[in-house]
């Protein structure tokens, strides 16, 4: 295979990996503090993309056209909106079910996901059809043989990585992050030490969901199209990435995100069958990986309490 073509695949795969990693980090943060899976997370990504789109249309109607301003406002609106949504989900759905079996939380959030999906489909104008997402980034590109280095994609990759690094720094280096990690390690001891448990949980959900909102905007800017049903697959992929990497570990989530993107790319390029099988291949490998490492590649450090 030509080096340029190969580079192109790797480049596109990295872009996908960044999106998946942004989604997976949210899963892993939520799992860290509450030991729950917020399965509507993929639909929060979708909702973020739609909030971004609606903001863009509003700005457009107001006559604000400066691309830099628009991108910034769109990203902030999606991030803040989803942060709020995440906190609401945590406060009214996840925390009340803390005492219930994990299965119930899983199901409640799965159903919440289909509620979000249906709300967008039914109530967003013409929501059941794919919506065009505006190209807001400079579209300059450089041709290096078969490899086209696009400026907009490069910007998206860099922005995505920077947001993940920022979230990681917040968790590792700030007082808030210390509180989050304390709750993740042992919520009761954390409470004894005077940490406001509920606040930490809400803030964690807000951070993770804001990241999902950004991921939605990145997705929209990359594909230039969003649809109400992108959330299900994104959620399952993000969850797979977080689980394959090892729930509770941010590095695991990033690793898992890039791994899944790599599997999809390999599935569509290197397999002898049609590229339509790439997801079939990727999920089959995920199942095999789960069999090989039942608690993920970077396993949870604590052993099971009886």
């Amino acid at each position: 295979m030509d080096a340029g073509v190969l580079a192109q695949y790797v480049f596109n795969g990295v872009m996908l990996g960044v999106i998946y990693a942004m989604v997976a980090v949210g899963f892993t943060l939520f799992f860290g503090v509450l030991d729950v899976i917020q399965f509507a997370h993929g639909d929060v990504v979708m909702a973020g993309a739609f909030v971004g789109l609606a903001t863009y249309l509003a700005l457009h109607a107001l006559g604000i056209a400066a691309p830099a301003v628009v991108v910034l406002v769109v990203a902030c609106a999606a991030g803040l909106g989803m942060a709020l949504l995440g906190a609401i989900i945590a406060r009214w759905l996840i925390l009340p079910l803390r005492a219930a079996p994990a299965f119930n939380t899983l199901l409640v959030t799965l159903m919440l996901g289909s509620i979000l999906r249906e709300l967008v489909r039914l109530f967003y104008p013409n929501g059941s059809n794919p919506q065009p997402f505006p190209r807001l980034l400079p579209s300059a590109s450089a041709n290096l043989g078969h490899f086209t280095l696009r400026l907009d994609t490069t910007l998206l990759i860099v922005t995505g990585l920077v947001t993940i690094v920022i979230v990681n720094l917040v968790v590792r280096r700030t007082r808030l992050g210390l509180a989050i990690r304390a709750v993740a390690q042992d919520s009761e001891t954390a409470r004894v030490m005077g940490i406001d448990f509920e606040r930490v949980v809400l803030v964690t959900f807000a951070i993770g969901s804001a990241l999902a909102g950004f991921a939605g905007v990145v997705y929209g800017l990359y594909y230039n199209e969003v649809n109400f049903d992108i959330g299900l697959l994104l959620g399952v992929i993000g969850f797979s990435a977080a689980v394959v990497g090892g729930l509770g570990s941010i590095y695991g989530a990033i690793l898992g995100g890039f791994l899944f993107a790599a599997l999809q790319t390999i599935g569509s390029v290197a397999l002898p069958v049609s590229s339509a099988y790439s997801n079939v291949f990727a999920f089959a490998v995920v199942i095999v990986l789960m069999t090989w490492k039942p608690t993920g590649l970077i396993a949870e450090p604590a052993s099971e309490r009886v």
């Binding site: 899983l106 969850f239 689980v243 999920f283 095999v288 993920g296």
Partner: peptide, 23 residues
């Protein structure tokens, strides 16, 4: 995979299979 995994990890196995199947 179902025997080796627990909880959320086991849920992922069946979810992945369900999506794999319809795709």
């Amino acid at each position: 995979p179902v025997l080796r995994t627990r909880g959320y990890y086991a849920a992922l196995v069946t979810i992945a299979f369900g999506i794999l199947f319809s795709t």
